[in-house]
């Protein structure tokens, strides 16, 4: 044994512990929680401005109130011992408070809110155009999916041959088309190419730009899938007497697809979202249609409606892709253990 003093021989800290019993951190105590809440309430009642066009002082009061209540809620939320229902209550109370502050003090014309943002008549007038736009959006999306899948698969397969010369060209393609913003690509294809005699209509340009861009990503995704299969797997399959095609079909592809699926779906979602960029080259897809309608009818309802439609289309898809991703991570974790 070394003569190092032994940590267990320190005097009993019983006293300490007893004293600590009353000494949970200040901000965690009931007194603080309720005291500061009351303080905030009193502050709000006393100082909140009564008139609507806000003075700088009034703005400061509101800012203080917002910061204070967020801080209070943060302290409350970070306490793991508080029951969940009280946190739920806090969250909703906070929402209601902010809603109220906004309602009371923004200069929005509340009486006209409905007619402005969810004006059913305006939407009814705009609807046929919006739906036409939706059809075009879907067409562009699906066409670009097809192009990018085929081109990407082709690039990935030729990349897998791992020939130095080919690699240079394929890497260059991938790098360039991942680096150019889609919108720039669209603009160049639509506005610049006609100068050298290649005239494409707006929709074809959009599809081509999206397809070329997303093919670069698809190529990388497929390559990742092919590389993710361990060499030992192929050797094991060959050792069992499977031929090349059987190895491919029974061992390689099933494993690669599991790796490829989540990012591939993510990529499809991304390029479907990017169809909105086609509006920059005057393709009347859904967003452009909404913009045109809102300008013509002088009412933002079509835009809001289009926003909601996009959410309805893409929230499920985004969910799907993150579920796939999560599932893959889990199975990988299992495989690692």
């Amino acid at each position: 044994m070394t003569q190092a003093t032994i940590p267990t021989r320190v005097p009993s800290r019983l006293q300490d512990l007893r004293e600590q019993a009353g000494r949970i951190p200040f901000i965690r105590r009931k007194e603080f929680t309720y005291g500061s809440l009351a303080g905030l309430a009193v502050f709000a009642v006393l100082f909140l401005p009564r008139t609507v066009p806000l003075t700088p002082a009034g703005m400061a009061v509101i800012a203080l109130l917002v910061v204070g209540s967020i801080a209070w809620a943060a302290i409350f939320f970070s306490d793991e011992l508080k029951p969940e229902w009280s946190k739920t209550l806090t969250a909703f109370a906070l929402l209601i408070l902010f809603g109220f502050l906004y309602y009371r003090y923004s200069t929005a014309q509340w009486s006209r809110m409905m007619t402005l943002f969810m004006n059913m008549e305006v939407i009814k007038v705009a609807l046929p155009r919006l739906l036409e736009g939706l059809v075009i959006t879907v067409k562009i999306a699906i066409s670009s999916w097809v192009i990018s899948t085929l081109l990407g698969l082709f690039l990935a397969v030729f990349r897998a041959f791992d020939n130095r010369v080919l690699n240079i060209f394929i890497i260059a393609y991938v790098d360039v088309f991942r680096a150019i913003p889609i919108m720039v690509l669209m603009v160049v294809i639509y506005f610049a190419l006609p100068y050298v005699g290649l005239t494409l209509d707006a929709m074809t340009s959009a599809i081509l730009a999206l397809g070329l861009n997303s093919a670069a990503y698809v190529a990388e995704i497929f390559r990742g899938g092919i590389m993710s299969v361990k060499k030992g797997q192929i050797e094991a399959a060959r050792a069992l007497g499977l031929n090349t095609w059987q190895t491919m079909r029974l061992v390689l592809l099933p494993q690669a697809i599991r790796v490829v699926m989540p990012p591939l779906v993510g990529n499809y979602v991304a390029s479907a979202k990017d169809t909105a960029l086609a509006s920059s080259i005057s393709v009347i897809e859904m967003m452009k249609a909404a913009l045109v309608e809102q300008a013509m009818l002088a009412n933002p309802s079509p835009l809001i409606f289009c926003f909601v439609l996009y959410l309805l289309m893409f929230v499920p898809l985004t969910r799907l892709s993150s579920i796939l991703e999560q599932r893959m991570k889990k199975s990988q974790r299992k495989a690692n253990v």
Binding site: Q20, A21, G22, R23, I24, R28
Partner: peptide
């Protein structure tokens, strides 16, 4: 007891 600071404990 809720009056205990668990980290110190």
């Amino acid at each position: 007891s809720p009056y205990i600071d668990i980290n110190k404990l």
